[in-house]
Design a protein around this nucleic acid. Structure first.
Lengths: 73, 73
DNA sequence: GTATCGGTTATCTTAAACGATAACCTCTGA
DNA sequence: TCAGAGGTTATCGTTTAAGATAACCGATAC
C-alpha cells in the first residue's frame, strides 16, 4: 500500500459512508468545522490528513476511526 | 475519545510495538526517514501525525495501519 | 431563462508537521 | 571516570494541512 493508494482509499471510504447516510459534503464539513473545499480534496485523495482530522470525520459519520483506514493488504 | 487521548494512545501503541521487537527509537526513525527527535515526540503524543506518517510506522513495524489506531470506544 | 444545490478548483494566510541539527539526560559497562 | 547507547528537548527552515474566501460547473426546479 503506497501513500497515494492509502489517500485515495480513505477518500473513497469517507465518500461511501457519507452517501450511505444521505449526507451532503457540505453538511459533513460543517459538522467537523472543516472547509467544504478541503472536504472535496480529502474525498478525492488529494490531501494527507492529520489523524485528528480523520477522528473528527469518523465521529461525524458515527463510525470507528479504524473503519476509515482498514483496507486489504 | 478526544484528540489528546488519541494522540497519547497512538504514541503508547507505537512504543509498545517497537519495544516488543527490541527496536530502538533511533532505528525505527531511520527506517521511515523520520527524525529521532520527532519520533520521541510522536511516542509521547505531542504530535498530530499525518496519516502517511502512521502508514510508514506501521510498515516499519510490520503491522497493519489499523493496529496503530484501534482503541476501545 | 435563472436560482438553488452539491461539488470542484484556485488562491491567500496561518498553523503545525517534518527535516535538520544540537545540546542534554540517564544508564550501563569498560 | 568516562564513553557510548537510548531517549528527550529546543530551535530553525521548509512544506503542507487547514481556515477563509471566491469563482465556477452540472443538474435540477421554478
Amino acid at each position: 500500500m503506497t501513500e497515494e493508494e492509502l489517500l485515495k482509499n480513505i477518500g473513497q471510504r469517507i465518500k461511501e459512508l457519507r452517501k450511505q447516510q444521505g449526507m451532503p459534503q457540505i453538511e459533513l464539513a460543517v459538522e467537523l468545522n472543516y472547509e467544504k473545499s478541503n472536504m472535496s480534496r480529502l474525498e478525492s485523495g488529494r490531501v494527507n490528513p492529520r489523524v485528528s482530522t480523520l477522528l473528527k470525520v469518523a465521529q461525524a459519520l458515527n463510525v470507528e476511526l479504524k473503519d476509515l483506514i482498514d483496507f486489504k493488504s
